[in-house]
Amino acid sequence: MKKSRPGAEVYMRFLQLAEAIRGLPTLPPLDPLEERILQLVARATQQQARLSVRDMMAKDELGAPATIHGRLKSMREKGWIVLAETEDARRKQIELTKAALQHMAKLSQCMEQATRG
């Protein structure tokens, strides 16, 4: 059997560890589009930027506004995001829930563990 390169081994260990935490009773799984939306919200959170529902629906690469709106609703129902009020009552800001942040922290631990081997 061919030996994997070290970088590939670390990534494969990470995938294995990440799959194990997905089996834990936490948040319901996301579909691929919801995963992409979660990444965008997480990146905005990290950059301390505001991301509104309107901003998200303007992202053509995610699909039609109705599709995006449906996914945001699904993600709220699954407990991944909340819509927070802003100074403009017509505009809602998308924020990660505490459970979503905890899930990301667990994934971070998986990455650290994978690199330690």
Results as ranks from 00 to 15, higher is better:
Met1Arg: 12
Met1Pro: 12
Lys2Asn: 12
Ser4Cys: 09
Gly7Trp: 08
Gly7Asn: 08
Glu9Thr: 04
Glu9Val: 09
Val10Leu: 07
Tyr11Ile: 06
Met12Tyr: 13
Phe14Glu: 14
Leu15Ser: 00
Leu17Met: 03
Leu17Trp: 01
Leu17Ile: 03
Leu17Lys: 06
Ala18Ser: 07
Gly23Arg: 04
Leu27Asp: 02
Leu27Met: 02
Pro28Ile: 00
Pro28Val: 00
Asp31Asn: 15
Glu34His: 08
Glu34Asn: 14
Glu35Cys: 11
Ile37Thr: 04
Leu38Ser: 13
Val41Gly: 01
Gln46Glu: 08
Gln48Asp: 15
Gln48Trp: 01
Arg50Ala: 14
Arg50Gln: 15
Leu51Tyr: 02
Val53Cys: 14
Asp55Lys: 01
Met56Ser: 12
Ala58Tyr: 01
Asp60Pro: 10
Asp60Ser: 15
Ala64Phe: 12
Ala64His: 12
Pro65Arg: 04
Ala66Asp: 08
Thr67Ala: 08
Ile68Thr: 14
His69Lys: 13
Gly70Trp: 05
Arg71Leu: 05
Lys73Glu: 13
Lys73Ile: 10
Lys73Thr: 06
Met75Ile: 04
Met75Arg: 04
Arg76Val: 03
Glu77Gln: 11
Val82Pro: 07
Val82Ile: 08
Ala84Lys: 10
Glu85His: 10
Thr86Gly: 07
Glu87Ala: 10
Ala89His: 14
Arg91Gln: 12
Arg91Ala: 08
Arg91Phe: 09
Gln93Ala: 14
Gln93Gly: 08
Ile94Ser: 06
Thr97Glu: 08
Thr97Val: 13
Lys98Pro: 00
His103Ile: 06
His103Met: 07
Ala105Arg: 15
Lys106His: 13
Gln109Ser: 15
Gln113Asp: 09
Ala114His: 03
Thr115Glu: 12
